[in-house]
Amino acid sequence: MKKYLALIRSGMVEALVYRTSFVLKIVGNLIYIIIIYYLWKAIFQSSGTGTVAGMTFPQTMVYLVLASSLFAVMEVYLVWGTHNAMQSGQIVSQLIKPVGYRAYNYCPFFGAMIMDFIITFIPTFILVYFLSGGYFDLGINLLWFIISIIIAVNISLSIDYFVSCIVLYTQSVWGLNIVKETIVMLFGGAAIPLAFFPEPLKTIVSYMPFQAIYNAPMMQLLGEAAPQKRLGMLLVQLLWAVVVYAASELFWRRAVKVVTVNGG
């Protein structure tokens, strides 16, 4: 346990070293908020009605700002990292570490995410809360929200892990990474709330693991549902977390032979 904590800590410290990147992330977030505020304001104004696909303008705003902020927190460079480690041959020295490749990479990410969450997400959250005039509740839903995020982080990392396995075979990264990124962003609901998706796309997307990354936590925060329904959503998320984890782990065990057989 101690070594995992040490790795998490290393990620936190490292995240703090690059102070400029925090400032940039915050500035980037701010400009992004401004853009989508004006864009969606124009969109809603042009539609003439206050509610579209069951969502109001403030709801859409809160959703998009927080979802994109979450996206920034959860974004890790595992796929590129694996590729670079493979190219430079460092992957061999990472494989012989006593903690296992997954933990060795995950823990610093967790650390960095915690710092990111505190420094970029929470201020955005507070800002959005006040700007939207206290649009969402700050009650028990926060607890559901947090738990949902923790599960979402694991799903997101497992997907990255899965794609990293493909990289071991193809030894090329840009294309795969962009496929992953666009799918997660679009079908996860970080770009547009899934509520806007027309049928049957909406139904199809709801059966994919990606919606469990951004849409699920946002629904826990913004939606008003009975505890049973919330628990149901959480269980679906958990199920996906287990499935994606298992799939990526099994794939990794096969894929890593590429390294051990070919010598990196």
Binding site: Y169, T170, Q171, S172, V173, W174, G175, L176, N177, I178, V179
Partner: peptide, 11 residues
Amino acid sequence: YRADFITTFFG
């Protein structure tokens, strides 16, 4: 670099 070219295409 075929693999690279193909994945870039899909990307």
